[in-house]
Amino acid sequence: MKTKLVTAIAAFGLTLAAHAASAETVRVGVAAEPYPPFTEPDAAGNWTGWEIEFMNAVCAEAKLDCVVTPVAWDGIIPALTSNKIDAIVGSMSITEERMKTIDFSDKYYNTPAVVAMAKGGGITPDAEGLKGKILGVQVSTIHQKYAIEHFGDVAAEIKEYQTQDEANQDLAAGRVDAVMADSLALDAFVKSDTCCEIAGAVEDDSAILGAGVGVGLRKGDDELREKFNTAIAAIRENGTYAEFSKKYFDFDIYGK
């Protein structure tokens, strides 16, 4: 009897060990710079926000052990390609240019790019409205590329910042005339600071702005990509996506 008991305990222990070993650890890169309402550290240093909840839901669905790994935004793709992280969940738009270097999951949200200005600034989100103006953008973003392509010849300056928060603070201080970024990021800013307002959405340019935001993955990591795709579809279908999203937005962030 004792031998059978020992054998059973040993077998149970091996089963647990095998289960633990089967849990795939995925280092998920997020931008080290705060990007509310998507990602930002709280007072205790824990990462919070809509994308953190999205990541947790997707990883739970896919049975992945995901670890948040902050990386400076302008180095996040090199961190992925050099195996320092395994995935990017950082409001990264799916663009043809980026797809030359990395792969993406299916999209998990899609919102327009907009221009914000000081209240009553009279700026329109086009070349005519930004003529002679100083426009702030975050480096290494689709918004920087769009601004250079569409407004570089008419703006007085395309001023680049390491973080969107720095650009927003310069707008509030009057050091730039306008900033360009994702509509939700700037909506959160104008709601928190009475200085500024949204001027409007820029004209779509899918070649630069992309076809929505996806999880960034290394080229050839097809198995992990399929796990993310399956999990994204599942949380959309079972209502989890809508449940955590309604805490942040009063519309469907998934978009068209």
Rank of each mutant, 00 (worst) to 15 (best):
A167T: 10
A172K: 05
A116G: 09
Q169K: 15
T15G: 05
W47P: 10
T101K: 13
G29V: 10
K63D: 15
N56Q: 15
G132N: 05
V215F: 03
V202N: 01
K63T: 08
D126F: 02
V154T: 11
G255C: 09
P34F: 06
A72C: 00
E51M: 05
G136V: 02
V190G: 01
T3K: 13
D42E: 09
A20V: 09
R218A: 14
K107G: 14
N46H: 11
N168P: 04
S82I: 02
A211G: 10
D204G: 04
G200F: 03
F228T: 06
Q162T: 14
E40A: 14
A181G: 07
V89Q: 12
E96Y: 00
L80M: 09
R218F: 08
G49D: 08
R225G: 14
H150T: 03
L80T: 08
M55T: 13
D250T: 09
K133I: 02
N56Y: 07
A20T: 10
G210Q: 08
E197R: 05
D221Y: 00
G45L: 11
D193N: 15
E197Y: 08
T230F: 04
D193H: 13
G75I: 00
R218M: 14
N46Y: 05
V213L: 05
D182R: 01
G49F: 04
M180Y: 01
Y161G: 08
A44Q: 15
K159A: 11
W47E: 10
Y254V: 11
G122Y: 13
T124L: 06
V28P: 03
A79Q: 07
A87T: 12
D153I: 00
P112H: 07
G214W: 06
M180T: 01
A17R: 00
R218Q: 15
N110V: 04
P37S: 11
P125E: 02
P37D: 11
I235H: 10
K191T: 04
K246S: 14
A18Q: 10
K256T: 15
